[in-house]
Design a protein around this nucleic acid. Structure first.
Lengths: 353, 353
DNA sequence: CGCGCCCTCTGTAACGATATAGCAACGGTC
DNA sequence: GACCGTTGCTATATCGTTACAGAGGGCGCG
């Protein structure tokens, strides 16, 4: 009992293969009598419809987009920022009838995956510029869109200006009268593995830190403590800031991601440091959890969902031969409950420049 | 300037197409001289290697497995249980050189996705038995593995016995002397959308509830309050139990997922109900967050990662024509800090049957 | 020296579908 | 009655690759 093909269905139905193809793909090109007869015979033979691989070869397209993810899969899914991006991406692609092929860039697997991926285009989601998979992708000569990182000549990129966005957060805190700051960012874990993982997003984080401190400097403020968490998780962030919280040297904390900011809230709650009365906290990303935290998190919104949708739209435009329109991504400070005016300061000085 | 093919590379290199194919796919079948010459010419022409679609057609396999996800994408990624499963699945598949095609079953998109998916097999991840996509999958006549739901004749299934596992949780609490219980489970949100989402996992949750209460009944205990959360999130769970916590009628709570259990911890902390002194809490799944909560959560471990890996292995066995060995999934109560002996009870009775 | 074997490479024939052009039949129009 | 546009189906020619069988040359062995 052979696997039925379009040919065999055609023979059994006494029509040409093309008619069977039409019956399945173009109801309007075919009388409904013939169509029903063909479909009935197909059902009897257990024919499920045209083979997707053969169709792809002939049509010259696969209706599938590959996504390269920088981090290991579990971390990808754990990161709400990445999840929001993927959500936007998947939604837009699905609406356009495109499937999503997941290509985890793990150290273990041969990156031959990229060579063999049955896709029409690639999306690079926060990849390291020196990732060997990037070279493989470029070799395929397919449309490519990069999200955040890497920046490559000739490759369209979706993303916000992290430095400028972070500067807005700084200005918000300056406007509230804060003059002494702490920053929680991602640092490389000395214990191997985690380090590699973090290095992948480091570039974007460094930009945010740079933009934030630059804005402070413009205002004549240089009192900034930088703390490093070893992974983008609430607990890692809470650990990173725990000791500092025993004797805080600032009235405001900027965390380079919401996840880290939520960790700061956790740590503050655990040590009974009142937020925002004693300490203002600002995050970055505006993930869903940010609005639901206690207190609700003031954060820099960069609409990750929208970025995913835009990345998808850009890919679709390229595939359709349209000129992708570079809609700008807006970013803005969403003021919620975790920031307020700086508390009266017992110490002297520092108010004037 | 045409897109180069294996043929054109062969002509340019003055060898047969088969030799080019060998140069790319089987280094040992080909002298290294020829191989290097061919690869060099290929590079010059900008040939990235054999076209995956054509290869798939010829070879008769795609080295890709499709995963059907029941919920909307964002919820999938937000659910740590699903994430753990996907992680195990993706890891094992990647090691075997298989890619992962994501097939979200959204109401919006035409389920034609299943027809057109370029895959060798399907994994159904907690699908509704009456989901139309299930029928589509069966029509494809490819190897299928189902996780949890649905149970289909002739389709291999991976999953634990939710009822029996939940019974273990019940016994653990009974052993600690508890006699009055509350259960937090998933209920349908009256406001449309969420309801559908929840219905998908409802069957599994209902089993857990059933197994838990049955075990209690065996011990002669019938004092059980059932509370419903409208989605599998910490906040929904906290909301669901908040009012009850004002005047708790039990000494122990069983939540049908860890996420719900964590929500119970949140709510208890907010109302200054001491866990476990005043209230013991047991979850289900043993997601990563369970070990890190305050206090660490006692839970029913069902090694979701392992289930993902097993599902992948089962698919791979089927593809290789091997008889899949049905390794059993162990489930056990992991006792951490959220359960302890029942507090001394002021009320009379109920100790004996 | 001749035999057989390995090693490398070539020729042929699909894999299962669809784009394109074209052909027959039909009804309507002038 | 000749002409023409539609409708509905067929015939042909690929899409780009790999499986398979086999050819030719070099080399060890009897």
């Amino acid at each position: 009992m052979e696997r039925p093909t379009l040919q065999s269905v055609a023979k059994a139905a006494g029509v040409s293969p093309m008619t069977v193809s039409n019956a399945f793909n173009r109801p309007d090109q075919c009388s409904s009598d013939t169509r029903e007869k063909v479909l009935k015979i197909a059902r009897e033979l257990g024919y499920a419809g045209p083979d997707p691989a053969a169709r792809s070869l002939r049509r010259g397209r696969t209706d599938t987009v590959g996504v390269l993810l920088t981090e290991r899969l579990p971390y990808v899914f754990t990161d709400p920022g990445m999840v929001a991006f993927l959500h936007g991406l998947a939604t837009t692609l699905a609406d356009a009838g495109q499937a999503l092929l997941l290509l985890p860039v793990e150290g273990n697997a041969r990156h031959g995956h990229v060579r063999n991926a049955i896709v029409d285009a690639f999306v690079l989601a926060s990849l390291l510029p020196d990732d060997p998979a990037v070279a493989d992708v470029l070799e395929r000569r397919l449309p490519v869109v990069s999200w955040g990182q890497p920046r490559l000549p000739g490759v369209l990129r979706v993303g916000v200006d992290g430095a400028r966005s972070a500067a807005k957060a700084a200005q918000h805190l300056l406007d509230l009268g804060h003059r002494r700051f702490a920053i929680v960012t991602l640092g490389a874990d000395p214990d191997g593995d985690g380090g590699n993982r973090v290095r992948g997003v480091h570039q974007a984080m460094a930009q945010r830190v740079a933009g934030f401190t630059r804005q402070l400097r413009h205002a004549g403020v240089t009192d900034v403590t930088v703390l490093e968490a070893f992974s983008n998780t609430r607990t890692a962030s809470a650990e990173a800031i725990a000791r500092w919280l025993e004797n805080p040297t600032a009235t405001a904390v900027f965390a380079v991601t919401d996840v880290l900011a939520l960790g700061v809230l956790d740590a503050a709650a655990a040590r009974h440091v009142a937020v925002p009365a004693q300490l203002s906290v600002v995050g970055f990303d505006d993930v869903a959890e940010a609005a639901a935290s206690v207190p609700p998190l003031t954060t820099v919104s960069q609409s990750l969902f929208e970025q995913g949708a835009l990345a998808a739209q850009t890919v679709l435009d390229q595939l359709a031969g349209r000129q992708p329109k570079s809609r700008p991504i807006r970013s803005e400070v969403v003021v919620r409950g975790s920031t307020t005016s700086a508390p009266a300061q017992p110490q002297a000085g520092r108010r004037s420049r």
